[in-house]
Design a protein around this nucleic acid. Structure first.
Lengths: 171, 171
DNA sequence: CTTGGAAAGTCAACAAGGCTGACATAAGAT
DNA sequence: ATCTTATGTCAGCCTTGTTGACTTTCCAAG
């Protein structure tokens, strides 16, 4: 059902060989193995500190959008408030995150990294960016552009909105 | 520490603007959001059947390398045998996977998908490939080549070996 | 032939991090 | 005054990862 015969490639002007099931499977496996590498370095650092990936995600997005509300973080991370709350509570207790009551709407809590939080964020980010930088450098700018295009096309629309919102400040 | 100033770009002949921290952060976030999309469709199917991602991974790689041993699967998946065993046991009990005692070495178990297993594999794979295909088509062949280059550069060396071994038959 | 060690399986216990459901509180909105 | 929203919290459940200990099977080296 899903086999795209090479003959189909004639349909368009360009070769559609990159859409064969075999190519798609390779892409799927590449995503799987690459994601392991992507998380490996932060995971090691987090383990030492007794944290997990969930903490990393919270720290990352709070750093990226300081003052974000719990609800906003919830929709970015796509988890339940109970799940996020467990993580946030430990980060707040450990003094990595500060929760400030909203100025206009006092129901909201605005989240900020403390000095210690920023320090851990840097440590995690440095490790992850180092791997990313090596991969980017090895592949070159054209490949990086393609990489980003495919990733973006792979996102759910709602996630793509988050991605653009978070990303749109800065180059 | 990790900031690469635009001035550094002059060092090489080509622009190194794609290696700024901001660009790297975007790449990191793109990976995060894209991976969610990548797993979303299979996750929905698996949930209906009472399985999880761990089952999907086992099914995928057994399909990809029929007759693989437990130990081989273990090193591909990077989990403990206890963890994999729990998943395999349920798949065997449910008749999706068959475990055959080794011909030469009778300690080894060779794993195969049954008819039912193949059927589920197809269902999961179709969903995941559909998203992949849409993303590939939207981005175009050049972008796909870059995508694959960056992903491969991002893998740990051992995972890259697995990737090549699994992938090297076929185009 | 015996024994060492590898491959596999199993049991128990635990932790992280998802989930649901129920409920409490504060405060904006109507 | 009441409805709704934002947040927090308690309890309980599931999946999927972990370690450690132990058994069975069986190849291979002595």
């Amino acid at each position: 059902m899903a086999q795209i015969a090479p003959a189909v490639a004639q349909k368009s002007g360009e070769s559609l060989l990159f859409l064969t099931d075999e190519q798609l499977r390779k892409g799927i496996e590449a995503m799987f193995f690459a994601y392991r590498g992507f998380t490996a370095d932060p995971d090691r650092i987090l383990e030492e500190k007794g944290y997990g990936r969930a903490h990393h995600r919270a720290i990352h997005f709070i750093h990226r959008a300081p003052g974000t509300t719990v609800n906003n973080l919830l929709s970015i991370l796509g988890v339940t408030k109970q799940s996020l709350n467990r993580v946030l509570r430990s980060l707040i207790e450990d003094g990595l995150v500060e929760s400030r009551v909203g100025h206009r709407d006092k129901r909201e809590r605005h989240l900020y990294l403390t000095e210690a939080g920023l320090e851990l964020e840097h440590q995690l980010s440095d490790a992850q960016r180092a791997r990313m930088r090596d991969a980017y450098r090895a592949a070159g700018p054209a490949a990086v552009a393609g990489f980003r295009q495919v990733l973006e096309a792979m996102m759910d629309p709602e996630m793509r909105r988050h991605f653009h919102r978070i990303t749109e400040r800065g180059a």
